[in-house]
Design a protein around this nucleic acid. Sequence first.
DNA 1: CAAACTTTTCAAAGCGCTTTGGATAGCGCT
DNA 2: AGCGCTATCCAAAGCGCTTTGAAAAGTTTG
Lengths: 343, 343
Amino acid sequence: MNLKGLSQILGMSQTTVSRALNGYPEVSEKTRKKILAVAAEHNYSPNVRAKSLATGRTNTIGHVILTGDRHQMINPIFGDFIAGAGEVYSAENYEIALSIVKEADEEKTYRALKTRGTVDGVVLHGPKMNDTRIGLLQELGLPFVVHGRASGIASDYSWLDVNNTRAFQRATEFLIDLGHRRIALFNGFEGMDFAHRRRLGYEKALQAQDIRLDPAIMRSEEMSDSNGYAATQDVLSLPNPPTAILTSSIISAFGVRRAVQDHGLEVGRDVSIITYDDGLSYLANGVDVPIFTATRSSVREAGQLLSQMLIDQINGDVTGPQSKLLEAELTVGQSTGPAPSPK
Amino acid sequence: MNLKGLSQILGMSQTTVSRALNGYPEVSEKTRKKILAVAAEHNYSPNVRAKSLATGRTNTIGHVILTGDRHQMINPIFGDFIAGAGEVYSAENYEIALSIVKEADEEKTYRALKTRGTVDGVVLHGPKMNDTRIGLLQELGLPFVVHGRASGIASDYSWLDVNNTRAFQRATEFLIDLGHRRIALFNGFEGMDFAHRRRLGYEKALQAQDIRLDPAIMRSEEMSDSNGYAATQDVLSLPNPPTAILTSSIISAFGVRRAVQDHGLEVGRDVSIITYDDGLSYLANGVDVPIFTATRSSVREAGQLLSQMLIDQINGDVTGPQSKLLEAELTVGQSTGPAPSPK
DNA sequence: CAAACTTTTCAAAGCGCTTTGGATAGCGCT
DNA sequence: AGCGCTATCCAAAGCGCTTTGAAAAGTTTG
């Protein structure tokens, strides 16, 4: 069933039917009702390809995420993000076009998204330092919002980020206040902007107390459970192991916790753990009592907010770059305690 | 830059240019070369909407996943699945259309996918017992492959599944052989087909040894970390707690492990744990030594295989329903040991 | 060299929708 | 009745591509 057929059944022109269906005022309420009824009866819904060819709008948002050498995997964080965004997309009648590409094909993918007219806009995931994609998207004229920010990019662009520096500074200060002086940092890839900012916060807090940075207890890698485990094994075997570990994801925090226990140490007494918590639904930080002391900001909520920003931008409801900085909240759980007195 | 513009530059008709670009034989190699060169120079790529309007093909696959009351969240398993599928899609030049919908809107979504012509086919995620979506998709004539199977559906359809019954039977037998008689089962939602089959395997193994089923140590719920933790807390507080726990996902297994330890018990000595492992990249079952004894089948690989099946079906490379049953492998890790002798 | 093919190219129709510019009908006026 | 409105409705063009049916060009033949 298409517009033509429908209009023949109704004995009206395609124009009128189309206008009635799309809520244009040039059609009387009476005929609109009739048209709507007949359309529902034959459960007609317009061919989305034809519609977007005619309007130039696609009502779909592109999400391109990297896979390949380093990131052969899709971060579970994406799942919660897109779940949040999906709510907004449904409400606003947008579709999601998901591209999973190798890093080498990334630029090509964005270009294709533009020239092939597949999407109305994209969300840029995982911004890196000096991220070249931002310039590319600006050049292409494809609306976008960055999930995060990119240090080193001078131009104005839309973004939504968590105050990572502040979050990690506060977390570190919290540990320092508990008497910890030797604090490990298990961070994400240093090329990623968020990891950079988190390290800055950590360093700021340490430097304020004249605590020396020690690269031996600082890591920068994929935030998986096994990496958290391995890194913890490593640092706990050092001659002077850390008394506290600050980690960038609850996923790796679980690995850290396991390694601490496998070392025969008690979490919160021998070794304190504090983590960044994205509020992942499948890996919640406990139910009643938090497992970990954590700086928390829901990535699902970020997905909601960001997708709304992008849609507003596409609809022209706002003009010029918008940005939003979320603050993470520090919740105290069972994984932290006063620094053990040196033996 | 569009076809018209390109053909004007070349001084040829759109027909010839289109044919050259799409590899039709009716154009000489010489002109094809020239056309290709000029196309690349102006980096032309065809408008995908117009193309699909003309051909009736969209070259995109729909994935509709549920959110809402029970499943307010996207299972991390989906991330690995789609990562696997994404590789195939890229190679075959397919796009992914992701729909995140509430359960109530699901049927409407599938219908819309068909009538609006958004996709060439869909993959059906998370089949339930007597799943009505299968009949719907058959009625709609939308090509699909089910990730899993649906007990109770008589008609033939394409699917790819793991032999869940066998996997759980083997796992249970493994525990029985170690002397365990009281084995808890932490399963997924009982409405889900895979959970049903897994329970069947578990029961089969127990019944073969005349071990009575005890609903008090059987759970059926979302396989999150916190549910694993809570369920373990529960059963360990029973007057006669289980000596072994069989769980349906590594995510909940991590929660189980934590609860066992928080109970002051040792995993693999006081309580054995065996889990189903989807081989999630961010939650690997250890690196060198497996953390858990597990029945394992990579969901990423399932994604690759299934998407290829679907594409073959869409391309007409195969006719009639295809199916594939994968076997899970049982790997022994540190989480299991002989049943503790009763005190 | 013309006839009979084969190869190469093209004009135009069509995919299903929106939208412009215009026609028609209905209404209250004078 | 005739005028000027506004409220409705419509025919046709156009979005960017594919594809059919036919023409033009090139190649073999007798």
